[in-house]
């Protein structure tokens, strides 16, 4: 989920742009071009390894942080059926974080290092989770819009050139197929409900629509001031770590989501939205990139809270993790004796 918005920014020097003219690099690129998978211990350019570690770990962090806004409603779910669904869904997010950390660890980095980067703020996670879940309808909106956007982003990643990442994504996509459907079904029940329920649904939709579009990340089919087409994103395409541009995915998302919103009787909060018969796509209004940058920079409604909760959980759990290791060591010693 959610890696699209986490492209490497222009001017980031921590990940080298590879020249790719050594014999190994030429052979490596030939394997990629032939759609061969790269496996953990294979030779790979340093930039490829670093790009993957960053992308996979940010993806993992997003899953783990993403448990918070939805977990926020588990104890308050309105029915037992919805409660069980939400518990299973949030648990899946945790599982997906786990699969992804697992994939990143095959690249020679430990989970501890990755978690440290999250907790000290140096690693990013998807900004979408810095928005609050204020009503029950937000749970529907997240499942339908956020998971919907995520699935669109993730399906191409199932064909990513790095084997462990691709395999994790296949597993994740298979499991997530219910996430979007349960969200839409939740919205459907609100759309058939009372005036209060309908208002709750429209309010949630108004708040999640634009952040969902921002999930696909900055424009990347054009350069210039508002675009971010960079050497890094071109390189990621060439390496088949990333396979479809942000803008293409965003357009696809708008095209499939607008009719679904109409079916629910929702009004899309965009005065410029209109069907364009010439292009067979919806035209939509400009995205507020200032808001995007602001939330990315740490000023979203929940950035501080999300990290604080994660940090505290980690610290509170330290004695448990330590005790489990101490017990394992004692037991091993006793068995050896």
């Amino acid at each position: 989920m959610y890696t699209q918005g986490l492209d490497i920014p222009k001017g980031d020097k921590s990940i080298p742009v590879e020249q790719g003219d050594s014999p190994e690099a030429v052979r490596f690129q030939a394997r990629i071009d032939a759609d061969e998978k790269i496996e953990p211990k294979d030779w790979m350019p340093e930039g490829y390894r670093k790009t993957l570690i960053r992308q996979i770990s940010q993806h993992a962090h997003s899953e783990v942080i993403g448990m918070q806004p939805e977990g926020n409603w588990i104890t308050r779910a309105p029915t037992l059926r919805r409660k069980a669904i939400l518990m299973a869904k949030v648990q899946d997010e945790g599982g997906h974080g786990l699969y992804l950390y697992s994939a990143a660890e095959t690249l020679g980095v430990s989970r501890d290092e990755l978690v440290d980067q999250l907790l000290d703020g140096s690693a990013k996670y998807s900004s979408i989770f810095n928005y609050p879940t204020l009503t029950w309808a937000d749970i529907g909106a997240i499942g339908w819009l956020v998971d919907g956007a995520a699935i669109m982003n993730q399906i191409p990643l199932c064909r990513c050139s790095y084997g462990p990442y691709a395999r994790a994504m296949i597993r994740i996509c298979k499991e997530e197929s219910f996430h979007q459907r349960q969200g839409y079904e939740l919205m459907l029940s609100l759309s058939r409900g009372t005036a209060e329920q309908k208002a709750m649904m429209q309010d949630a939709f108004d708040r999640w629509w634009w952040p969902a579009l921002m999930m696909f990340g900055p424009h990347d089919t054009k350069g210039g001031a508002e675009g971010m087409k960079s050497q890094h994103s071109e390189q990621s395409m060439k390496w088949r770590i990333k396979r479809v541009s942000n803008d293409e995915l965003r357009q696809k998302f708008v095209d499939v989501t607008v009719p679904q919103a109409e079916y629910l009787g929702l009004k899309v909060p965009d005065p410029y939205l209109k069907w364009n018969a010439a292009t067979s796509h919806y035209d939509f209004g400009p995205i507020d990139w200032d808001e995007f940058k602001n939330v990315l920079a740490g000023n979203g409604p929940c950035n501080k809270k999300r990290l604080k909760v994660r940090r505290e959980a980690h610290e509170r759990g330290a004695w448990v993790r330590e005790a489990a290791m101490a017990y394992a060591a004692k037991k091993a010693k006793r068995q050896a004796a």
Binding site: L98, Y99, S102, A103, E105, S110, R111, D112, R167, A168, R171, A318, R321, E322, A324, M325, Y327, A328
Partner: peptide, 29 residues
């Protein structure tokens, strides 16, 4: 403590008659 739980590789037999297959990993003490 900064000592993380060791990593274990996980293999699953999806049904009898098939080999165990590698599916990923978990951390555990």
């Amino acid at each position: 403590s900064r000592k993380e739980w060791p990593l274990y590789e996980v293999f699953i037999r999806s049904r009898n008659g098939l080999n165990h297959m590698h599916v990923g990993s978990v951390h555990a003490p």
